[in-house]
């Protein structure tokens, strides 16, 4: 469903201005002693409950910033503080 997203710099904009970078999963783990399995789990394995999740979005057709937003895959809407 078409929805809008809040860019921290540009404000509310149409979804198609943005690119989704997927779930937030924290910074890259240290590579010293990192097992292949741990790496591939970090890189591509996800748990996707139908509940709000923090995500990374890129304002590609705008200011070019990556920012975190909370969106619910069950409703496909951004969860904004105060609605």
């Amino acid at each position: 469903m078409t929805f809008m997203l809040t860019c921290p710099i540009c404000g509310r904009r149409e979804l198609h201005e943005f690119l989704c970078g997927g779930q937030e999963r924290g910074p890259r783990p240290p590579q010293e002693g990192l097992s292949a399995e741990a790496h591939f789990r970090y890189a591509q394995f996800r748990s996707i409950p139908p509940a709000p999740q923090p995500e990374w979005w890129y304002h590609g057709q705008g200011c070019g910033v990556w920012f975190k937003a909370t969106r619910n895959p069950a409703t496909n809407r951004e969860e904004r503080p105060g609605g």
């Binding site: 469903m1 078409t2 198609h16 989704c20 996707i48 995500e55 895959p73 069950a74 496909n76």
Partner: peptide, 14 residues
Amino acid sequence: MDPQVNYTTDPTAR
């Protein structure tokens, strides 16, 4: 396809 994960089956105008 929508570019973001979701469980809705809502079509888009775009």
